[in-house]
Design a protein around this nucleic acid. Structure first.
Lengths: 337, 337
DNA sequence: TTGAAAGCGTTACCAT
DNA sequence: ATGGTAACGCTTTCAA
């Protein structure tokens, strides 16, 4: 039960504690094959494992990266998380995870996180105040926002180009001759929804389209179903609905069907995200992809850059998705993927 | 840029370093309101944050719990993870996360994890060898397996009672007069699939049913679709298919539809897990629930028990789910939920 | 209620 | 290639 330390190993192996340390710290350091194996053997016998905490303490480097995820259960965050973790393990770093409780400000969590002296911090799907971003910068802790951004603050960010995506969807719907357009919004005050809506409505306006209908939902299947039902039962039912994400779009398809409307013949429905489910035969949803892998790669690149070169300025990367043409919008030729 | 320590605060506040420590360690310790506020004020000025690493070092307690998740992207693990994290944050613990890369043995990851001196370890959806379980026990690190178990090893476990679930499904299908039964298997050598299949086939055998058809899949939508297609196109097409999880069952429903078969009139389909999607109008899948919340609660309870009482013996908790009767099985009365 | 001093188990640096 | 020793920034006795 008593913890065995490098000193115990040193004594038993008849070498100095420094030597034991060298064997385990792996780096350069020249050690004779002979003593190395001896140390290793003794460690095995004694059941010695280096104490990472002590290592952090004396090297002033934790090799820990903090991850804050606000919405773990949303469609693609688990995937993102898995990729992050795999990558971190490959480069010998560990992940300390935090989740933002409902209504909890990220700002409030930071002090706790900083106590752990993380080497860097990734925050997904949540924003921090510019003051806090300043604080992090002063602290010397690189922060990368994933799928959010703050302008003017010293924090890097990787984000889908939702504004441009919204614009392209507006173009698509107009180009294919739709005449009564609607928008099903995601949760208010999320940048995801705001940006998609802004791109969509701005472009519509630019092209002279004026009577856009709108229904509020919150990114969930149920609210998407609800919102679409309301829209489709109204007097001036739309012939095309853009839903702020795929889940709601799938809800909308089900809503249309339960009203005995055909998709896309009676109403076109387009989503956003390109989650796996949107490819399923029963939905075959036309959507606009989030290039998640590209976003993950960008994040990881920015991160290693910052880690190697702490003084490099913050980077903001906007990743544009692409149209995934399937069968739920009238008049568009399905693409292969 | 220079890190400010409790010594800096002590000097500036004109107190001893011990006093500063006392102020921040929060616990009992009597401190005059006067010095406390003074210390707090100075800390604020200097931007001091206690160093958690140093604290771990000297207190020999990390307050860190390790979480190993093999399959983060499977349907309900994100939910489980979120609950775990929320709970840990409530009780002032932090989570160090690991994921098992494809084909990576958990056993190989443990040494790394132990280096961090985690107070406890939760392993989801993966097993460890009994030797490793022994090692953990000797180490004094409580281990709890979530959704897996090892018998005879000193590790606690919380697991759905998949065998009994499989048996009940056999009973249900037989009781409702189905005559040509099939099973769509999940990945081989997963205890989830093995247990569900064992319960199902054992019970079928007990009741004298003999020509069960079987198709191999791997828990994914696509393979479920495939497997069901094969089954339904055969000469002796089944009139009831039990799929080892909901995702495959949903694939099976789509497969049936694409063959112009009606569910449940032409073929009954039943899944397992009760994921949110199974309640969607377009599937309305009859299934057997995993009582995830109960499992999470059990896990957390066992964990705090172990933490308070390290010598308590390992506990194995089998959580039985219940039938969620919806519309995809002929002859069963839908329940409300 | 406060202070002094001894660890905690490494790494890093300086010798040899 | 190896050993000695001073940090690292706290918590924890033990005294006062």
């Amino acid at each position: 039960m008593k913890r065995v330390t490098s000193i115990d190993v040193a004594k038993r192996a008849g070498v100095s504690q420094s030597t034991v340390s060298r064997v385990f710290s792996g780096k350069s350091s020249y050690i004779s094959e002979q003593t190395r194996t001896k140390v290793l053997r003794v460690s095995e016998e004694l059941g010695y494992t280096p104490n990472a905490i002590a290592r952090m303490m004396s090297s002033r480097q934790t090799n820990i990266i903090g991850i804050v995820m606000a919405n773990i259960t949303s469609p693609f965050y688990p995937y993102v998380l898995e990729k992050f973790l795999q990558r971190f393990q490959e480069i010998g770093r560990n992940a300390l995870m935090f989740t933002a409780a409902p209504n909890q400000e990220i700002d409030d969590m930071l002090p706790l996180i900083f106590q752990h002296r993380v080497d860097a911090l990734i925050i997904t799907s949540a924003t921090l105040s510019s003051e806090m971003a300043e604080a992090c910068a002063k602290h010397g802790t690189p922060v990368i926002l994933f799928n959010r951004y703050v302008t003017g603050a010293p924090a890097s960010a990787v984000c889908a180009d939702n504004v441009e995506g919204g614009r392209r969807i507006a173009d698509l719907l107009l180009d294919t001759g739709h005449e009564r357009l609607a928008y099903v919004a995601g949760s208010v005050n999320t940048s995801t929804n705001n940006d998609r809506e802004k791109g969509y409505t701005d472009r519509l306006t630019e092209r002279g389209y004026t009577h856009l209908q709108r229904a509020q939902a919150n990114f969930s299947y149920e609210t998407g179903f609800q919102a679409a039902t309301t829209l489709l039962e109204s007097d001036h039912a739309p012939d095309a609905i853009f839903c702020a994400n795929d889940i709601m779009a799938i809800g909308a398809i089900d809503a249309a069907r339960s009203l005995h409307l055909r998709v896309p013949d009676d109403v076109s429905i387009i989503g956003y995200d390109n989650i796996p489910m949107s490819a399923w035969a029963s939905y075959n949803l036309t959507t606009f992809s989030q290039e998640v892998d590209a976003m993950i790669d960008d994040t990881l690149n920015i991160l290693s850059n910052k880690l190697e070169n702490p003084d490099s300025p913050p980077v903001i990367s906007l990743v544009l998705g692409r149209l995934i043409a399937r069968g739920s919008v009238r008049g568009v030729q399905p693409t292969d993927s």
